[in-house]
């Protein structure tokens, strides 16, 4: 092909806009204007540091149980006191944070992967695939989540799953309960995207399905995915705490915020030793609030139409 002698149009005026380009930079700019969202992000980072780096500064990491120091009130050597086995509560709180955050994020990643893939497939191909996926999702959604989790957890206890593996099984359980609503959301988004003109254009250009889905559909769904994924982390942390509180999720000796609160079940601990159950309760509360603030902020900055509510 030789070059056209058609006149070259002046493009000076667009150079400035091109410099700052990128939709993501715009999103970041809007995000950093939201004080609450920033607060959420900072709190979350602190919780992460507390849980994952904190234990390395604790002198009680290797100590484990210590019969000499059971049920001590908070003091300079044990900032948050000790439990009935003489373990340092602060150290356990950090270790429990690792578990709770891991379960929350792991369950979210699994749910987003399953829900995202199935939602995109159902929305894009429609027909039989859509029917099968959405009917399974419908069935799962008609079953109330918590009892379902209880039943699965009870089965897990029945099979005597080792304590360290329960963590992963709890993740899988939570994602099984959470994927249907995600898949539905993604599917509806894909259904509307599929009819957009640029998707017709990809058809005209003869692109294969893989390219159409990965390059054209997925990037358009990603913002929605990020927001719902973030918000669902909070839900997953809460569900895990509930399960563990009832002794059905992560079980001792592995610490989780939920099974730490479990001590509040005994009247003596509840009335006389608040240092055992208030800290994990506060930890759950703060983390979930921070996650939700972050999620709301992300949603508002990704979708500018929502702002000014």
């Amino acid at each position: 092909m030789s070059y056209s002698n058609n006149e070259v149009i002046q493009t000076d005026h667009i150079t400035k806009t091109v410099q700052r380009s990128s939709l993501w930079k715009e999103v970041m700019k809007r995000f950093f204007k939201r004080k609450m969202a920033i607060a959420g992000l900072i709190i979350l980072l602190l919780v992460f540091l507390f849980s994952f780096i904190g234990p390395f500064f604790s002198p009680y990491m290797t100590a484990g149980t210590n019969p000499q120091e059971i049920h001590q009130a908070p003091s300079l050597s044990h900032w948050l006191g000790t439990d009935h086995l003489g373990r340092d509560v602060l150290t356990r709180l950090m270790l429990a944070g690792r578990i709770s955050l891991t379960v929350g994020i792991g369950a979210m990643l699994l749910a987003v992967t399953i829900g995202g893939i199935l939602g995109i497939l159902a929305g894009y191909y429609g027909g039989l695939i859509d029917q099968i996926v959405m009917r399974i999702a419908d069935i799962l959604m008609t079953l109330p989540g918590l009892p379902l989790l209880f039943i699965m957890a009870a089965i897990m206890s029945e099979w005597q799953v080792p304590a360290e593996q329960r963590l992963y099984i709890v993740m899988i359980m939570l994602s099984l309960v959470n994927w249907p609503s995600l898949a539905r959301l993604i599917r509806s988004q894909v259904l509307s995207l599929r009819e957009r003109e640029f998707m017709v254009a990809t058809e005209v250009l003869g692109l294969r399905d893989k390219r159409k889905v990965l390059n054209h559909l997925l990037p358009n769904v990603v913002p929605l995915l990020i927001v719902t994924a973030t918000l669902s982390v909070g839900g997953a942390i809460l569900s895990e705490s509930v399960l563990s509180f009832f002794g059905l999720g992560v079980v001792p000796p592995t610490a989780s915020w939920g099974n730490m609160i479990n001590t509040a079940n005994t009247l003596i601990d509840f009335t006389n030793r608040p240092w055992l159950w208030i800290p994990p309760g506060v930890a759950i509360f703060v983390t979930v609030i921070a996650v939700n603030l972050l999620g709301d902020g992300l949603r508002d900055s990704i979708d500018p139409n929502m702002k000014g509510r």
Partner: peptide
């Protein structure tokens, strides 16, 4: 070929 200048910037926009 289609008569737009500054191709390097256009392809990044």
């Amino acid at each position: 070929l289609v008569g737009i200048g500054r191709g390097e910037q256009i392809i990044k926009s």
